Amino acid sequence: MRERQASHDARPAREFEAFVAGAAGRLLHAATLLTAEAPDANPRARRLLTLALAHTYACWHRLRGEDPYDRARQYLATRYAREAWHQHAAIGRDRPRPPGTLAVLTPQERLIVVLRLYEGVAEEQAAALLGLPTERVRAICDRAITTLTHPPRGRAPTVRGPKVAPS
C-alpha cells in the first residue's frame, strides 16, 4: 500500500520533469528575447524562467487538462511585464539598453512581439493576457515590426567645416 502511494505521489513529479525537459529551452529563449539579453549572458531571463517553472510546479496538481506550457508562458509574460513596468517607473528612459536584437523596442513592444511572432499567440489572447484592446495590441505590434525592420539611426556626426583664418 505504501509503495503504491509513493508511486502515485512520484507520478506528478515525473510528469513535471518531462514537461521541463521539453519546454524549458523554448521558455528560456522567449525569456531571453523579452529581456533582450545576449543568449550566453542572460541572468534576468534565467530568473524569469525559474520563477515561471516554480509557479507552474506549484499549481501542477490544479491544471486539470490545462496546458502547462500556456500556464508557464502566461506567468513568464505577466511577471516580465510587471518587472519591466517597475524598472521603467524607477529608472526612467535613460537606462542603458541591453545588447539583444530586440533591445531597440520598449518592454511592451518586446512583450507583444515575442507573444505574437515567436510564441504564435493570437491577437485576442495577447490582448486578454495584457489587459489591452485588440486594436492596441495590433498597433503596438505593427509599430515594433516597423522599428525592427527600419531601426532608428543614431545621432548624426558633427560635420566641421574648414577652418577660416581671421581677417
Score class of each variant (00 low, 15 high):
R2I: 14
R2Q: 15
R2W: 12
Q5D: 11
A6D: 15
S7A: 15
H8D: 11
D9H: 12
P12R: 01
A13I: 13
F16V: 01
F19N: 05
F19T: 05
V20Y: 09
V20T: 07
A21K: 01
G22I: 02
A24F: 06
G25R: 04
R26W: 06
L27P: 02
L27A: 07
A30I: 00
T32S: 08
L34P: 02
T35K: 02
T35R: 02
E37T: 09
A38N: 04
A38Q: 05
A38T: 12
A38M: 07
D40P: 03
A41Y: 02
L48C: 02
L48G: 01
L49D: 07
T50M: 04
L51P: 13
A52V: 04
L53A: 05
A54D: 15
T56V: 03
Y57E: 07
A58F: 00
W60H: 09
H61S: 15
R62Q: 15
D67M: 09
Y69T: 11
A72W: 00
Q74A: 14
Q74M: 04
Y75I: 08
R79M: 13
A81C: 09
A84V: 08
Q87A: 15
Q87G: 03
H88W: 12
A89P: 09
R93W: 10
R93N: 12
R97Q: 04
R97A: 13
R97Y: 06
P99E: 03
G100L: 12
L102R: 04
A103M: 01
A103T: 12
R110Y: 06
R110F: 06
R110V: 03
L111H: 06
I112R: 00
L117Y: 12
Y118K: 08
Y118L: 11
Y118R: 13
E124Q: 12
Q125S: 10
A127S: 10
A127Q: 07
A127P: 08
L129S: 04
L129H: 01
L132C: 01
L132N: 01
L132P: 04
E135D: 15
V137W: 08
R138Q: 01
I140Q: 09
I140Y: 06
C141V: 11
D142V: 01
R143M: 00
A144C: 05
T146F: 15
T146S: 15
T146G: 15
L148G: 04
H150R: 05
P151E: 05
P151G: 00
P151A: 03
P152A: 15
G154Q: 11
G154E: 15
G154F: 12
A156I: 13
P157G: 11
R160Q: 00
P162T: 10
K163Y: 04
V164H: 05
A165L: 14
S167H: 14
